[in-house]
């Protein structure tokens, strides 16, 4: 009797399961985000300082959460590839990188849009924004490294090593950015919120967070399916070449 993870490890089983799951996950994501947007626009009160503009946080903050969760997923997959040689680990890592990078970009972009009315400028070297920017660089590094190595097995292992280095360095980078920030501009940073967030804001935020998470899962499942299909096509093409080569040689013998 195989365990659930063992069954998931088998790409064929994964394809079957994910095909059945995907429409439900995607639908769920749409429903939760729709409900979250309703809460964000019609239930949450406008910010008493910033007014309506503060509602951008309901996209900005969940994006940043997913950006971090995506990198964590890549690091776990990298570990799974290097240590357990899990057959789907590299597919998961490769599929997650561009999606994670997109959410990171979304966090930066919405942060910048929000910055204009809040801070009077599109970019402030605020500790959180800076950390997210560096996270974006780490994503870019993963994607760039993978794309510049032709051998796929090699690319997957090297990218996995880089992802693990990144996850070790991330807390240190975050810590140093926080330190540098408090050192240089102790009080110029506008606090996004007080020490506690009122539930009328927290609830839509959490709902949107859940919605983005399920959306990420749906996109990731789809990307993993695409990657598996791409690898199958490649394997078929290679088999075709090998067969053609053997047929050419055979009559000559």
């Amino acid at each position: 009797m195989q365990t659930f993870t063992q069954r998931l490890a088998n790409p064929t089983q994964f394809m079957g399961l994910s095909a059945r799951l995907l429409p439900w996950v995607a639908g769920l994501a749409a429903a939760i985000i729709a409900y979250g947007l309703y809460l964000a626009f019609f239930v949450a009160p406008p910010d008493y300082l910033q007014g309506e503009i503060a509602r951008i946080m309901f996209v900005h903050v969940p994006s940043a959460w997913i950006a971090m969760a995506g990198y964590a997923l890549i690091a776990v997959s990298a570990f799974g590839l290097l240590v357990f040689r899990h057959p789907l680990a590299d597919v998961a890592a490769k599929a997650a990188a561009p999606i994670g990078a997109a959410f990171t970009f979304l966090a930066l972009f919405t942060g910048s849009l929000w910055g204009k009315p809040a801070w009077g400028t599109y970019w402030v070297w605020d500790a959180r924004l800076t950390s997210v920017l560096i996270l974006f660089f780490l994503y870019l590094g993963l994607i760039a490294l993978r794309s510049s190595i032709d051998d796929e097995t090699l690319a997957s292992k090297l990218t996995a090593i880089l992802a693990l280095v990144g996850i070790v360095m991330l807390p240190i980078i975050k810590f140093s950015v926080d330190w540098g920030n408090t050192l240089h501009q102790p009080s110029s940073v506008l606090k996004l919120s007080g020490p506690t967030i009122h539930s009328s804001i927290l609830t839509p935020l959490l709902v949107m967070g859940a919605g983005f998470l399920v959306l990420f899962v749906a996109m990731h499942l789809k990307a993993m399916r695409n990657e598996i299909l791409r690898r199958r096509v490649k394997a078929l093409q290679l088999a075709e070449v090998a067969r053609a080569a053997s047929q050419v040689v055979a009559p000559a013998e």
Partner: peptide, 30 residues
Amino acid sequence: ALTLTARRGGLLIALLVLPLYVPTLIFGIA
């Protein structure tokens, strides 16, 4: 080491390594 067999090795190193230098830079200046 990561870019040993990669195409565009030189530029790639900068992209991979510079973010890792952030803590050193910040605390060096501090």
